[in-house]
Simulated scan of single mutants.
Amino acid sequence: MTTETPHRPTAGEAVEKLTAELWAAVSAADERAATDVVLRALDDGMAPESVLIDVIASVQGKVGEEWAANRLTVAEEHAATAINERTVAALSVHPAARTTPDLGRITVACVDGEWHALPARLLAEVLKLRGWHVDYLGAQVPSPHLIAHLHRTDADVVALSSSIATRLPTAHAAITACQAVGVPVLAGGAAFGPGGKYARLLGADAWAPDARTAADRLARAPLPRPQPDHQPIDDLPHLEDQEYSIVTRSSTSLVRTVLTALEDAFPAMRTYSDHQRERTAEDLAHIVDFLATSLYLGDEDLFTWFITWTAGILTARGVPAQSLPPALDILARELKDFPRATRTLRHGIAALTPEHRITAGKTA
């Protein structure tokens, strides 16, 4: 007679099970159940860092994917994110997460205008677990307030987070300001582009794609402090043409002009409700913002990515993406005297699929 040894789940299986349980709780807007999942995992011996990154961060990634696919409303996405933030807070006070700071001091902050705070909060908690003294400043931190904090605390490094690429000009100012007071900057977040290429362009001292990689990078070697006489090098000579500044200053009038002209270029818009027109104006404002950011960075690929992403989002929501080519065409006509802007807009149009380019009586 033999007895079977009970199957003991592997670490990967345990993470997969917990992730599914947390997603079920979060998607049902059940904060208590979500918190119970996280605390039970810690009670059962799962490492707090694994819970933060492999479970909570994974579920938050799924929240974003479900919103993009139109399977979560904006309100549901916000509720899910708030619940994930609460699970992080619950984890942070659990006995398994208590550590004594024995490394340096780090300030973790989101750039001004960046309200996606959860990635920065996850990083802050991982760094605490690793032994850092962490000052977590949260979302939307104006650069003057960040610098004032650095003067008071003598931080060894700043971890600067941004998820939205249109915040990169502000991030550049923050990076430069931190380095000017002798504090190196570790950049992170989706805004800094694939492989962190915009972090390098804007002069950050280091970049990491996620909290675990950031903590590992800081563990390998400290970031050297910029010299007291550090002067930022102008790595963006293309800004001399003033296209970025002019588009930024003209954004409101550009949106208004395109919105008015779009009724002739895209006749279906004449039947839009007030709410649909408001949403169209919001979409146009985002397009102008991304155009300006692309001009700031000198990178047309950023704008192309945003336009194709927007087309996918509109399609998922049952909104005709065929309005995009005529809108971009009108913008190009308005900015005909600005070669970088018009070239960027034409590349955006070309990146759309034939279905998106076909408009009423005209092919863009």
Rank of each mutant, 00 (worst) to 15 (best):
M1G: 12
M1Y: 06
T5R: 07
P6E: 02
P6S: 03
A11L: 04
G12N: 08
V15C: 05
K17N: 11
T19S: 11
W23K: 03
A25H: 06
A28S: 13
A28C: 07
D30N: 10
R32V: 11
R32N: 13
A34E: 00
V37W: 00
V38C: 02
L39S: 09
R40I: 02
R40T: 10
A41M: 05
L42A: 02
D43T: 03
D44H: 07
A47W: 01
P48Y: 01
E49S: 04
V51Q: 06
L52D: 01
I53C: 08
I53P: 00
V55D: 00
A57Y: 01
G61Q: 13
E77W: 05
H78D: 03
T87W: 00
V88I: 14
A89Y: 03
L91A: 07
L91W: 03
R98C: 04
P101F: 15
G104H: 08
L123M: 15
E125G: 01
E125R: 01
L127G: 03
W132M: 07
W132Q: 06
D135F: 10
L137Q: 12
G138A: 11
I147T: 05
A148K: 11
A148H: 10
H149G: 11
H149P: 12
H151A: 03
R152I: 04
R152Q: 12
D156F: 05
V157P: 03
V157A: 11
A159K: 08
S161W: 11
I164Q: 10
A171D: 04
T176P: 01
C178Q: 08
C178W: 04
A180K: 12
V181G: 08
V183S: 05
L186S: 03
G188E: 02
G188S: 06
A190N: 09
F192I: 00
F192Q: 00
G193W: 06
G195P: 04
A199L: 02
R200Y: 01
L202A: 00
A204C: 10
W207V: 08
R217M: 02
R217Q: 00
A219V: 10
P222A: 08
P224F: 06
Q231F: 07
I233P: 05
D235I: 08
D235G: 15
I246G: 01
I246C: 02
S250K: 12
T252R: 07
R256P: 06
T257G: 00
E263G: 13
R270C: 13
Y272C: 12
S273E: 10
H275F: 11
R279Y: 13
E282A: 15
L284F: 07
A285K: 14
A285D: 15
H286Y: 15
I287A: 06
T293K: 09
S294I: 02
L295Q: 09
Y296Q: 03
G298K: 01
G298T: 02
L302D: 00
T304W: 09
I307K: 10
T308K: 13
W309K: 15
A311C: 14
R317M: 07
A321G: 13
A327L: 13
L328R: 09
D329Q: 15
D329M: 14
L331R: 00
R333Q: 04
R333T: 05
H347Y: 04
A351L: 06
T353Q: 14
P354M: 12
I358H: 14
T359V: 12
A364L: 14
